[in-house]
C-alpha cells in the first residue's frame, strides 16, 4: 500500500509547487497511515530528486527514458498506473496544473479510481473518504465523497504550505513495460523567458479597463518587475487585444491563488472575482468607490490607478531601498 505522488519536472527541475505537493502527499500518507512514494518521469538529476527528501519523501521512482521527454497523456497515464499498481497505491496525487488536469482523469478511468480535482486540503475523513473542493469557480465549496477503493486527487495550486521534514531518500530507476508508443509530436516550443509565470507567482499585478489603453501598461510592468510579480489582466482587456489571452484572469481565463493580488482599474465583475478570490490579500485601486472589487479587497484606494501607480512604485522602491 502507498500514497503515490507524481512529481512533475520542468526541464529537469522541480518548482515550489512540487514541494507543496510533496508535503501534502507526505501528510496524507501519515494520516492514512501508509508509505509515500514519488514518481518522476523524464530526466532529472539525482541531486534534484533528493530534494524531495526534505519534504518527507523517502522513496522516489524515476523513469528516465528519453522517449518520455514529451508529455503524451496516454503514455504518461500508463506509466503512472503501472507504478501505482506495482505499489498497490491506494491514493495517487497530482498537481492541479496543466499536466495534472490532463493525466488525473485518464488515470481515474484506467485505475477505476474516483477523482476529485482541485482539492484544497487534506481529506476531512477517510472512512468514508471525503475531500473539499471549490465549485462554481470559487463561489462555493463542496464536500465530495469518493466511493471507489482507489482514489485520485489533484491539489489546487497554492493551497498547501511547504512543510520541511527531512528524511533519507532511496532512488529507484524504473523501466515501465506498458508505456506504449509516444504519439504526441511536438513541432515547436515557445517559452516565455524572463517573466514570472502567472500561475506560479506569489504576487500578481493586474490591470483592467480602467487603465484606459494598452500604452498605459508600463507602470504595471514596472511594479511587477520590482516585486518579482507576474502580470495579469481582466477579460475585457484581453478581449480587446490590449494584453495576450494568457494573462486573462477570471472564471473563463486563469484561476489563480497568489499571496498578493493588485487590481488596478478593475471593477470586479463576478466572473473576474471568481478567478482571484483565493488570493490571500487583494489590493484594489479604482475610481468608483462602489466598484464590487472593494467587496473582496483587503485594502482599497479610491482613486485613479494611473496616478496611484507611479506613487506606489516610488513608495515600494523606498521601502525596499531599491
Amino acid at each position: 500500500m502507498a500514497v503515490l505522488v507524481y512529481t512533475e519536472n520542468w526541464d529537469g527541475k522541480f518548482k515550489k509547487s512540487t514541494f507543496e505537493l510533496a508535503s501534502y502527499a507526505t501528510r496524507l500518507a501519515e494520516k492514512i497511515p501508509d508509505q509515500v512514494v514519488a514518481l518522476s518521469i523524464g530526466h532529472v538529476e539525482e541531486e534534484e530528486l533528493k530534494k524531495l527528501g526534505r519534504y518527507g519523501i523517502g522513496k522516489v521512482i524515476s523513469v528516465e527514458d528519453d522517449r518520455f521527454k514529451t508529455l503524451d497523456n496516454q503514455v504518461y497515464t500508463r506509466i503512472i498506473a503501472e507504478v501505482a499498481e506495482n505499489l498497490t497505491a491506494s491514493v495517487v496525487v497530482l498537481a492541479h496544473n496543466n499536466s495534472g488536469k490532463a493525466l488525473a482523469p485518464r488515470l481515474s478511468v484506467r485505475m477505476k479510481a474516483g477523482l476529485v480535482s482541485g482539492t484544497t486540503g487534506l481529506p476531512e475523513s477517510f472512512e468514508p473518504f471525503i475531500v473539499i473542493k471549490k465549485t462554481f469557480t470559487g463561489k462555493a465549496l463542496a464536500k465530495v465523497v469518493i466511493h471507489t477503493a482507489k482514489k485520485i486527487l489533484t491539489l489546487a495550486q497554492n493551497s498547501y504550505q511547504v512543510v520541511e521534514q527531512v528524511v533519507p531518500v532511496e532512488i529507484r530507476k524504473f523501466v515501465p513495460v506498458s508505456a506504449g508508443d509516444v504519439k504526441t509530436v511536438v513541432k515547436e516550443v515557445f517559452k516565455q523567458t524572463g517573466k514570472v509565470i502567472l500561475t506560479d507567482a506569489d504576487i500578481v499585478v493586474s490591470g483592467g479597463r480602467g487603465m484606459k489603453s494598452p500604452e498605459n501598461w508600463g507602470p504595471i510592468e514596472e511594479l511587477a518587475k520590482i516585486l518579482g510579480a507576474a502580470t495579469a489582466c481582466s477579460r475585457p482587456v484581453s478581449d480587446e487585444g490590449w494584453r495576450p489571452h494568457e494573462e486573462h484572469t477570471g472564471q473563463t481565463g486563469k484561476v489563480i491563488a497568489p499571496v498578493l493580488y493588485f487590481a488596478f482599474g478593475i471593477s470586479g465583475a463576478i466572473q473576474h472575482v471568481a478567478g482571484i478570490s483565493s488570493s490571500k490579500f487583494i489590493v484594489a485601486v479604482n475610481t468608483d468607490k462602489d466598484a464590487p472589487i472593494f467587496e473582496v479587497a483587503d485594502y482599497g484606494i479610491v482613486g485613479d490607478a494611473q496616478k496611484v501607480l507611479p506613487a506606489l512604485i516610488e513608495a515600494i522602491k523606498e521601502a525596499k531601498s531599491i
Partner: peptide
C-alpha cells in the same frame, strides 16, 4: 463543478490520444 475531467476521461474510455 469545475471537474476539469470529462474530456480526458472520455479519451481514456475510448483509448484515444488526447491533448489538454
Amino acid at each position: 463543478y469545475n471537474g476539469a475531467a470529462t474530456g480526458s476521461m472520455l479519451a481514456e474510455i475510448l483509448d484515444y490520444p488526447s491533448l489538454s
